[in-house]
Design a binder for these strands. Structure first.
Lengths: 131, 131
DNA sequence: GTTACTGCAAAGCTTTTGCATCCCT
DNA sequence: AGGGATGCAAAAGCTTTGCAGTAAC
């Protein structure tokens, strides 16, 4: 918890509750998801605060934003390089516990300096298969 | 061009002009990009028509939507399986002319039936490197 | 003649911003 | 005390929808 203060972030109750909700979370929640959850124990929090806090945490490299859902933003406290499984039907996002060694030959890079990569697998999740 | 009529799509001048703009396009345009371009030769077209047409084309499998930019939707007439290069700075999206043989071991699939995958490489494009 | 498409305006959603107040440090 | 954080409401984007008129088939 110390690391946040070292970043110059003020530890307000709202912020603490967002951080503790995110820590270890593997559900890739949206701002709305977080707001709904936090509201239960913290009825006065506003959605704007959630957005602002997420932006702040993202800017300080505490969380990542994942661009996987065209309809809303999802956030991921897992900073380790990892890939995702996405359900084409219900849009559920799961972490993948496997990495790939992807090398881009020089002549396919189109002049880009490569920083990283991300792999998404699409499919039907276990719940959606049943339906 | 015949294929569109076979899909039951009416070939209006607006639609033809959107289709011909998209055919062979490798820029992954947004609805706004398309609207701006088409407007020049077709001043009466509306943005709503562009959106509706894109939705129709997508539903008929004529184009794909790509989820790569959190701020707006991009469309891609290239239906062939392919991956992308994304500039972290200017958000430019380029096609990758290389495929990967990615196999997900059974025990990493979390019960998903896998349909496909998509790889994104992040980096700095040739123009942004100069700055 | 049907049926689908167009274009306008209005509405819908998610996300951002302005600002006065509050409260961590 | 100072500066960032909160929360409200308003605004800003992007995208969708309703509907009357129009055009493709």
């Amino acid at each position: 918890m110390m690391k946040y203060k070292e970043l110059g972030l003020k530890m307000t109750p709202q912020r603490l509750s967002i951080i503790s909700f995110l820590e270890g979370n593997k559900d890739h929640p949206t701002a709305e998801d977080i707001y709904k959850k936090i509201s239960k124990k913290f009825p006065t929090i506003s959605l704007a605060t959630v957005y602002k806090t997420l932006e702040t945490l993202k800017r300080h490299g505490v969380i990542n934003e994942i661009t996987i859902d065209p309809n809303r933003r999802h956030f991921d406290p897992n900073l380790q390089r990892h890939h995702h499984l996405i359900c084409s039907r219900c849009r559920k996002i799961a972490d993948l516990d496997i990495d790939f060694d992807l090398v881009l030959p020089e002549d396919t890079r189109k002049g880009f300096d490569i920083i990283g990569n991300h792999v998404e697998f699409y499919g039907l999740c276990i719940d959606c298969k049943k339906k």
